[in-house]
């Protein structure tokens, strides 16, 4: 995009010749200070993860006593820990299963629980935004307020419903999906509603005048227009479920435990396997990052792209 050179504000005029290509590209970095601040933020936000990465490479015998940089200067860092964590059973919660099994469980838990709330949430969001009916506002507000019901308090009542005294799906994948879907509802409806309600109203009015039903509008207009919002919400729901421990621990079983379960046991176990916590935590980050990068382009239109006029 060819941007016409803007009038240079006074303070940059005083800065002698920094007309490099980079300076041109960064026209919004209006001063050295902004650049410096961006670099500092980027560094601050990255250093802990870098630290985690290097700590993952520290062999067990040094883990307790030496910092990773000491081990690095001595040339003793190794990638071995990743292999142990992934393919060797090291006595985690699942006793005979290497972490790879939990990693695959994480995928099986996460993917459906991203799809279900998106579909159900989008249906409701459309209804609350564009179908006028009595009490619509109040129900929507109620759903919004439910976001704050602490998950912990919902565990026991819901477990009674899903457990052996109820429909008996606790401990299986469907049980975990069901619980996650419920807990995702308030935020999904809230965020999707924000997006959909900002679609220009003439689109819907024109469709209604043409005699389109709500079902037809939903499939022909709402879904295609909501793709960027769905993609963004999908990322956040993915991250939330992927990183969840509590719901999976309560509604799952040894057959379904995701990555967070053995990691949490490792972290609480200061014994012989403590040095495997950093590599395990690092592995658990990789798939969410891949998901983020592959869906990142949707952010250009973004979750709230329509909201700028408000």
């Amino acid at each position: 995009m060819a941007t016409p050179a803007p009038a240079i504000p006074d303070e940059t005029k005083l800065t002698p010749k920094r007309k490099s290509k980079a300076a041109e590209a960064k026209e919004n970095l209006t001063s050295k200070w902004a650049t410096a601040a961006a670099i500092i933020i980027a560094a601050l936000w990255t250093i802990p993860t870098v630290g985690l990465f290097f700590t993952s490479l520290v062999p067990g015998e040094y883990y307790r006593t030496d910092a990773w940089w000491t081990v690095m200067f001595e040339g003793n860092l190794t990638f071995e820990n990743f292999g142990i964590v992934m393919f060797d059973s090291f006595g985690d919660s699942t006793s005979a299963q290497p972490l790879l099994g939990n990693l695959l469980n994480s995928i099986v838990v996460t993917v459906p629980t991203v799809v279900f709330p998106l579909v159900i949430g989008l249906m409701a969001a459309y209804a609350f935004a564009w179908i006028p009916f009595k009490g619509s506002d109040w129900i929507f507000v109620g759903i919004f307020a439910l976001q704050v019901v602490p998950l912990q308090l919902a565990l026991i009542p819901l477990l009674r419903i899903l457990g052996p005294e109820g429909i008996g799906i606790a401990g299986t994948f469907p049980g975990v999906w069901f619980a996650h879907t419920i807990f995702a509802m308030p935020l999904a409806v809230f965020l999707l509603h924000n997006f959909i309600s900002q679609i220009p109203s003439d689109i819907f009015e024109a469709a209604r005048v043409d005699g389109a039903s709500h079902t037809q509008i939903f499939f022909r207009i709402v879904i295609p227009l909501a793709v960027p919002a769905l993609a963004s919400l999908a990322i956040f729901q993915f991250l939330w479920v992927w990183n969840d421990l509590l719901v999976s621990a309560v509604f799952g079983s040894i057959d379904t435990y995701p990555l967070t379960y053995p990691i949490s046991n490792l972290a609480g176990d200061y014994g012989a396997t403590a040095y495997l916590t950093p590599p395990a935590a690092f592995i658990s980050m990789i798939i969410p990052l891949i998901v983020f990068f592959s869906l990142q382009r949707y952010f250009v239109r973004g979750l709230l792209a329509g909201s700028t006029k408000g």
């Binding site: 026991i156 477990l159 009674r160 109820g166």
Partner: peptide
């Protein structure tokens, strides 16, 4: 904590 939750939840 989980044992209490599982008992209360009937599981």
């Amino acid at each position: 904590t989980e044992i209490n939750i599982r008992i209360e939840g009937g599981n």
